[in-house]
Design a protein around this nucleic acid. Structure first.
Length: 371
DNA sequence: AAGACGGGGTG
DNA sequence: CACCCAGTCTT
């Protein structure tokens, strides 16, 4: 069976697998989450967006925060974008937050504030892809759409011993079709939840608990002892290295910040004016570039260095602090007091710097000391 | 079809 | 350090 393109996910196997999963769910699945059994599509939607590529434990606090501040879609649509971003700060993948806001406005404008009912319309919302649309449709309305997330492809790839890659078009189509065929149509919501729970609790990426897995009698990977070979994912890309030199400009106790607007990392968040270079260059070289930009400032010592590991890149950061005079101008941005700056959302590294930037009587004084 | 997009946890 | 996480969007 292994290595071939065609698998007999015949009806017998289909019923066997879903029956086993449903029985396990009824008798042994103790996994609890606040949104489990939730029928209100708005809450389901929030939880699903927050949980995209995010561990349940990490998203939990944010979920509670969002339902507290935005108990319904109209509140969310009416939210101030800066406040929204601040609430999302630290969670990553910030396009999720921007799209959440966009979608909320669409629901208010096009659907009178009532969450759309059909899979097709749900799928049209920005930030909602096949997984999220299936999750909302099945959880809220018990519509027969199979969810295919990281848990599901792990369970299925191991069970069928499928070497189909989970990150190319062919593999995605294969897992999608198999998942859909396995779905008990009349119990879509409960089953979808259950197979994901199984993947999260039993069929884990490392150290799967095969001994207590309800599927082990027919699981190809388990029977062959090859659990670690699944799922197959092809070529991960090399990590990019980037070097950012941040300029912390203090004028009359206020710091200059800018919004990141390009289609790049941290879009929508705030930062300090930054020079990106292909490696860390001597301060003198940076000063020449600054001078070429027509700015009347000269950098001194680096106040703070840090790096941050992201999934696809490593950011090396340096922070320079400069006290400038009242007349300083030449860089676009907003001058903010410590209090105002704290209300904006920053990426992790600049946020750490900002949180340790000294201030006296509600004004930045240009000092820095890492607490 | 292939990259880009965050941050945290795990082995 | 590499991989993974209730994926989606852009190029």
């Amino acid at each position: 069976m292994i290595g071939k393109d065609k698998y007999s996910t015949n009806l017998v196997t289909t019923n066997w697998l879903s029956n086993k999963i449903m029985a396990w769910n009824d008798e042994e699945n103790t996994r609890q989450m606040p949104w489990k059994g939730e029928k209100e599509p708005y809450f389901i939607w929030l939880s699903e967006i927050i949980l995209q590529q995010t561990r349940v434990e990490q998203g939990l606090l944010y979920y509670h925060r969002f339902i507290y501040y935005f108990p319904n879609v109209r509140k969310l649509a009416a939210a101030d974008e800066k406040k929204l971003m601040k609430l999302w700060e630290g969670l990553g993948y910030y396009s999720r937050c921007r799209n959440l806001h966009k979608a909320a406005k669409i629901i208010v404008a096009d659907y009178h504030g009532v969450f759309p009912k059909s899979y097709e319309n749900i799928l049209k919302l920005p930030g909602v892809g096949p997984y999220t649309a299936a999750a909302i449709s099945s959880f809220a309305y018990n519509e027969p759409y199979a969810v295919v997330d990281g848990n599901v492809v792990r369970v299925l790839s191991r069970f069928f011993g499928s070497y189909k890659s989970i990150n190319n078009t062919d593999g995605k189509r294969w897992f999608g079709e198999v998942a859909q065929r396995l779905l008990p149509k009349k119990k879509a919501g409960v089953y979808n939840q259950a197979i994901m729970d199984l993947g999260a609790v039993i069929c884990k990426p490392r150290k799967p608990q095969c001994e207590i897995c309800p599927l082990h009698n027919k699981c190809v990977a388990f029977l062959l002892g090859k659990q670690q070979e699944f799922p197959v994912k092809n070529k991960r890309i090399r990590k990019k290295q980037r070097w950012f030199s941040f300029l912390i400009l203090i004028r009359d106790g206020k710091v200059l910040i800018q919004k990141r607007v390009d289609n790049d990392i941290w879009k929508g968040l705030y930062q300090f004016p930054v020079y990106e270079t292909s490696s860390f260059v001597p301060t003198s070289q940076l000063n020449r570039r600054i001078s070429k930009d027509g700015l009347q400032i000269k950098l001194g010592k680096v106040a703070f260095s840090a790096s941050q590991e992201l999934t696809h890149q490593t950011i090396h950061g340096r922070f320079y602090v400069l006290l400038v005079t009242q007349s300083f101008k030449g860089i676009e941005g907003e001058w903010l007091t410590p209090r105002a700056a704290a209300k904006r959302a920053f990426p992790k590294m600049p946020a750490i710097f900002l949180n340790n930037l000294g201030c006296v009587n509600g004004k930045f004084d240009g000092s820095f000391s890492k607490k």
